[in-house]
Design a protein around this nucleic acid. Structure first.
Length: 292
DNA sequence: GCACAGGTAGATT
DNA sequence: AATCTACCTGTG
């Protein structure tokens, strides 16, 4: 039975994408709530359920029947951070004297950093440790089905942190979260005792926001930086995961550098949008374009 | 069977 | 302060 989505419409104010940069932006490891179905992607965030497809150099969208197209486009604009000029930021990256970054940008030009809901981003990356992307997606979906609110198309949103706090570690483990279940449940309880705490962290200056996130059980530097980059538009946050560490050591020949030294290198070399550069490198490495 | 996967925290050296 | 190690589960 087909899901109750309406007709395809052109997203008039969509950012400029190539087919590659479009696919990589929504389904390249920034977000874990998109799935490819036939020739389109279906995704969810907050209470939104949307289908998107790249068609004739444009982005078309479809939304559940009976939902408001104007509101949907506003929510899309927010999610895709349409207030940010990524073309300008891309040009400002040091690709002119960095052949590795140049290769990555040539292939994925037009890539964007999403502006996902802060609380959901934190949750998804708490699920992500030593998991492959398909598994992270499966876990998020399982938790959404168990604890998340129903959406207009019959699918489920991710649960709020309050809803997780009212559940249990055991229920999280049922979603195959493994050892991550304890971190997530303890973080939920931490947040439940501190109304407004996460919202304050979201708008704090980046360093303060990061140190706040690091107070949460299971949140280390990498997850904190992913939350800041993909969930708060902090393009200066440079998450160093196993991929980025390999890229920096092999392609940038920084063998033996410590995490703090790699952070310093990223800030100095890539500049104030180092997190944006990070996503290009991550995409290129996963595509096998640069050695990692 | 076994290593590894978009890590973190606590123990050990 | 740097380097192990345990922690769940699925995949190759």
């Amino acid at each position: 039975m087909p899901k109750p989505f309406g007709a395809w419409q052109v997203w008039v104010d969509a950012p400029k994408f190539s087919e590659t940069s479009f696919a990589e932006t929504i389904d390249g490891g920034q977000a874990f709530r998109w799935q490819k179905i036939e020739d389109f992607y279906e995704g969810r965030w907050d209470k939104n359920a949307v289908r998107l497809k790249y068609e004739n150099e444009q982005i078309e969208f479809a939304i559940p029947l009976g939902t408001d197209p104007e509101a949907a486009q506003q929510n899309l604009a927010s999610y895709f951070a349409c207030d940010v000029d990524f073309a300008q930021l891309e040009d400002a990256l040091p690709w002119r004297n960095d052949p590795v970054l140049d290769t990555a940008i040539q292939h994925f030009s037009g890539l964007r950093i999403l502006r996902q809901p802060f609380a959901e981003t934190l949750f998804c990356f708490l699920c992500s440790s030593t998991k492959q992307i398909p598994q992270i997606k499966a876990i998020c979906e399982a938790v959404a089905l168990d604890m998340g609110e129903g959406l207009a198309d019959g699918s489920h949103a991710l649960p709020t942190w309050a809803a997780i706090a009212e559940a249990s570690e055991k229920r999280l483990r049922a979603a195959k979260l493994g050892y991550r279940a304890r971190y997530i449940y303890e973080t939920a309880c931490f947040l439940a005792e501190r109304p407004g705490w996460l919202e304050t962290a979201e708008v704090a200056p980046t360093e303060e926001a990061r140190s706040r996130l690091l107070e949460l059980p299971g949140v280390g530097r990498k997850i904190a930086d992913c939350t800041l980059l993909f969930g708060a538009g902090r393009l200066e946050a440079f998450p160093i995961d196993t991929w980025i560490e390999k890229i920096l050591t092999r392609s940038f020949q920084l063998e033996g550098w410590k995490q703090t030294q790699l952070q310093d290198f990223a800030r100095i070399h890539f500049g104030s949008s180092s997190g944006y550069a990070q996503q290009y490198l991550f995409a290129a490495a996963r595509a096998g374009l640069i050695s990692s």
